[in-house]
Amino acid sequence: MRITSRSADGVTRLSLAGELDMSSTQLLHDQVTAALDGAHTRTLVIDAVELDFCDSSGIQALVVNHRRVTERGITFRLTNARGVTRRALQITGVLDALSGD
């Protein structure tokens, strides 16, 4: 998996590409930690437009990081989930909570 990070005006956007699975959840955790420790992030956006696959460990990582972020009073929003990733998030019942819908 590849994660790119951009920050501007209190919004940090982490763009995910590839597969979020057991082998890449630590990378997501590390990038979220960096976002929380970095600039004055008020909103953390996880952009999943290029995320091709997300297994149960990836879903768990998203949920755990959602909790970490919101406990700090920061808005968390998952955007652009599509295909099999979107379907997995819908089936598990977490898509609405993660996307802020």
Rank of each mutant, 00 (worst) to 15 (best):
R2E: 14
T4R: 12
T4C: 09
S5E: 14
R6I: 03
A8W: 08
G10E: 06
V11R: 12
T12D: 06
T12L: 02
T12S: 03
L14D: 07
L14F: 04
L14W: 07
L16N: 01
L16S: 05
A17N: 13
G18D: 15
E19F: 07
D21L: 05
D21N: 13
S23H: 14
S24I: 09
T25R: 09
L27R: 10
D30S: 13
D30C: 05
Q31M: 10
Q31C: 11
V32T: 06
V32M: 07
T33W: 00
H40T: 07
T43V: 13
A48Y: 02
V49S: 14
L51N: 02
D52W: 01
D52I: 03
D52S: 13
D52Q: 13
F53D: 03
S57M: 15
S57W: 10
I59G: 08
I59D: 06
L62T: 09
L62M: 13
L62E: 03
V63P: 00
V64F: 06
R68H: 14
R68C: 08
V69W: 04
T75P: 01
F76T: 06
R77K: 12
R82F: 00
T85R: 02
R86F: 05
R86Y: 04
A88I: 01
A88M: 11
I91T: 14
T92G: 01
G93S: 12
V94T: 15
L95R: 05
D96K: 11
L98K: 00
S99I: 02
